[in-house]
Design a protein around this nucleic acid. Sequence first.
DNA 1: ATAACTGCAAAACTTTTGCAGGAGT
DNA 2: ACTCCTGCAAAAGTTTTGCAGTTAT
Lengths: 145, 145
Amino acid sequence: MLSLQKLMDQVRHAGLRVTRQRTLILQALCELDGHAGAEEIHRRLALHQRDVDLSTVYRNLEALRDVRILSQTDLGHGWAEFEVVGDRPHHHLVCQRCGHVQELDHACLDAMGDTIRDRYGFEPILDHWAIFGLCAACRAVDSGT
Amino acid sequence: MLSLQKLMDQVRHAGLRVTRQRTLILQALCELDGHAGAEEIHRRLALHQRDVDLSTVYRNLEALRDVRILSQTDLGHGWAEFEVVGDRPHHHLVCQRCGHVQELDHACLDAMGDTIRDRYGFEPILDHWAIFGLCAACRAVDSGT
DNA sequence: ATAACTGCAAAACTTTTGCAGGAGT
DNA sequence: ACTCCTGCAAAAGTTTTGCAGTTAT
């Protein structure tokens, strides 16, 4: 469970101000406990009579992403999705056949991250990945047929 | 180098018709030899007095992607980028600050792919990735200030 | 006090769609 | 001939921006 209190400390520590809107946006993301797009957050806040302008939502998602409090992912829905960066980075292996999802050890990505840092001087953001493919069970079915 | 001839055979074989516009779009993508967005292709064709309507470019990119002649990637520029499939697999490092894009050696991902296969029995699809983060130049600016 | 932030409205952008005519097989 | 494809124009949808006023530090 994520503590809104701690998140707001992070916000302050990042040099950003703790505003009503910022707090509400992060609260919504915590409650949703997963990915959400700007429009979805805006709609949710409106439902709770906690109006925050859509442009403010966009500006905040960008700002919070820049200071690494949020991570941004494109799930091919046609809009950007955001998520609170947790204590431990988590990743998922998603089976394209059966939809089964399993967690992926962060170490698998870390090794690649180190290589990228060393060879390219590029600091990769590996907070949250979804890797698509075929799970063991579906591969077995495939080779059986 | 990619042969336009062979590409058009693929087009026909996929059940699509070989039209002037389709050919020009694929030719442009071959010449650009890399990823390009719809607008960029459209602009390039216009420069060469080979007018193809922008909506036609979009419709073709989608159709060619659906039959796997093109691959689609989001490089975080705000638009979709397309590329001819069949080249050696390669990936992109995209700077979240300045938008700069550099190529990433497939070997870096391959090692991770092997680990995932070995440890999870999961067959990951690692054809074409975009990894976001901070490029060397932007990291230098950050540590400077 | 001062710099950051917000709401509002309008615009910028990419991408999609309806339709009538044109082109490939 | 039979579909598929294209151009045109208009719209849909997401995201950005200018600006004046408000708020956090």
